[in-house]
Amino acid sequence: MNDKWKNAIWAILKYGSLIIGSLIVVFPMWIALINSLKSNQAFNNTGILQVPKHLDWSNYITAWNAGGLGSAFLNTAFIIILSVAGNIILGTMVAYVLGRFQFRLKKIIMAGYLVVMFIPTITTQVAIFGVIHTLGLFDTPYALVLLYLGTDVVQIYIYMQFINRIPVSLDESAMLDGASYFRIYRSIIFPLMLPASATVTILKVIAIYGDLYSPYLYMPSTNLGVVSTALLRFEGPFSAQWNLILAASIIIAIPMVLLYLFLQRFIFAGIVNGSVKE
């Protein structure tokens, strides 16, 4: 009897807090959604919490056209595909070397990656800009690709945890078959780390997708606009029209939600397997 009560209270607590948490998460998104679907008139005349009687999609069309979102999506996709692909290759390479070999500089390299994570990059842009300009990449998407290419400590952490779970015996048997280290990386390590790469992908895409400052600085041409800069540019002239801004915000959220739904099973598998303690 006592145990039953305890379990019941525990269950109420569990589901209760999950529901409250979910409501807090959903509330702002719900408000944004319903208000983005109101015409100017409906927006002015109905309460913010009320669902519009008639769904008006015109804000989405206006936001898409006036915000130049079409080309912004293409530019963003181009940058993301190139940099994430490169990033995964480099990240797995670093993880393979750090995870499988012992050598002198290993500790220093890891510490190096850790330290740079704490540099507020916005303050070092003058020097970085000099590099990008010297390389002749200013005002091209490749400037951003190069900046996003490098791996970072969180990625290395995810990959390292994962590679430690791949039995070394696999490497050894491949070596018995005469495989080179490069071949081991290419045919064993890289494919087996794909779930971790799914995690890395989503984290990296989120970071690139939300980056505001670098696109402004390195690709000022308006026709090179990316999604987050398009949204900020859009806000200036339209900041009085909340229904439009909310519509633009939602349009921008959609591709990420789709990507997330697609990668979801890999991500959680990746993180789960990737963070096993040694």
Binding site: L246, A248, M256, Y260
Partner: peptide, 10 residues
């Protein structure tokens, strides 16, 4: 996973 700028606007 939502865009950081969009979240601030919302």
């Amino acid at each position: 996973i939502l865009n950081a700028v969009a979240i601030v606007f919302i």
